[in-house]
């Protein structure tokens, strides 16, 4: 739950244009309260991100509207975690992905980008491969649950885009993930 809240903060930054709710400062109690992932912006999906000035991320403390990004982050979960060196989906991860699939079937206009991430305790190139494998595992699972694979793009960031910046087990665990980002067609 903690990390879930944190990611909502970061995602709010990330998708500045469409972000609506939630004060970024809200999840203060989180271990690493940093506005993460902003960097992703440039490289990933230029189309979406473009000119998001920070002003757009106004504090607008309304509850998550159905079909919104916030809804997806808070009520569904946008991130699944992997064990060290692993790319198998545990039960928790499968639950989250089942909710993602259900959510996506309710909002068929939404396309997603699944990013595979790794911790820093591996080499760059191997981690790029491992990240790609994690992203594909997530994608394939969603497809197996009925999501049209044309709606899902994948990317690997290897160890280049850590969510948590610490160098310890907690941070590494957070950084081994598959991260589902909503690309377009998001409501409100």
């Amino acid at each position: 739950m903690r990390s879930l809240m944190m990611t909502s903060a970061s995602l709010a930054l990330f998708i500045g244009v469409t972000a609506c709710a939630s004060a970024p400062k809200e999840p203060e109690p989180v271990v690493t309260p940093d506005p993460v992932v902003e960097e992703v912006v440039e490289d990933v999906v230029e189309t979406v991100v473009r000119d998001d000035s920070m002003d757009n991320i106004v504090t607008e403390p309304t509850g998550p509207a159905k079909g919104s990004l916030q809804d997806f982050q808070v009520n569904v979960g946008d991130r699944v975690y992997f064990d060290l060196d692993q790319y198998r989906l545990g039960a928790d991860a499968q639950d989250i992905l089942k909710r993602q699939a259900a959510w996506l079937s309710s909002y068929p206009g939404v396309n997603i980008l699944v990013a595979g991430n790794c911790d820093e305790r591996g080499t760059r190139e191997y981690n790029l491969a491992l990240g790609e494998r994690r992203a594909s595992i997530v994608k394939n699972y969603l497809v197996s649950l009925g999501v049209d694979d044309a709606r899902i793009q994948t990317v690997s960031y290897g160890k280049e885009k850590p969510l948590a910046i610490g160098s310890n087990d907690d941070s590494w665990a957070q950084n081994r993930n598959g991260f589902t980002q909503l690309l377009d067609g998001v409501v409100g």
Binding site: Y87, E125, L128, A129, E132, R133, A135, S136, I137, S156
Partner: peptide, 25 residues
């Protein structure tokens, strides 16, 4: 799909690289 880990052959005439497709590099 994604390509990475490039390196020239020693004669410079070709490049070795990795392509990852659907979870397999």
């Amino acid at each position: 799909s994604m390509t990475f880990a490039p390196r020239f052959s020693r004669d410079g005439q070709s490049v070795l690289l990795t392509q990852a497709t659907n979870g397999n590099s």
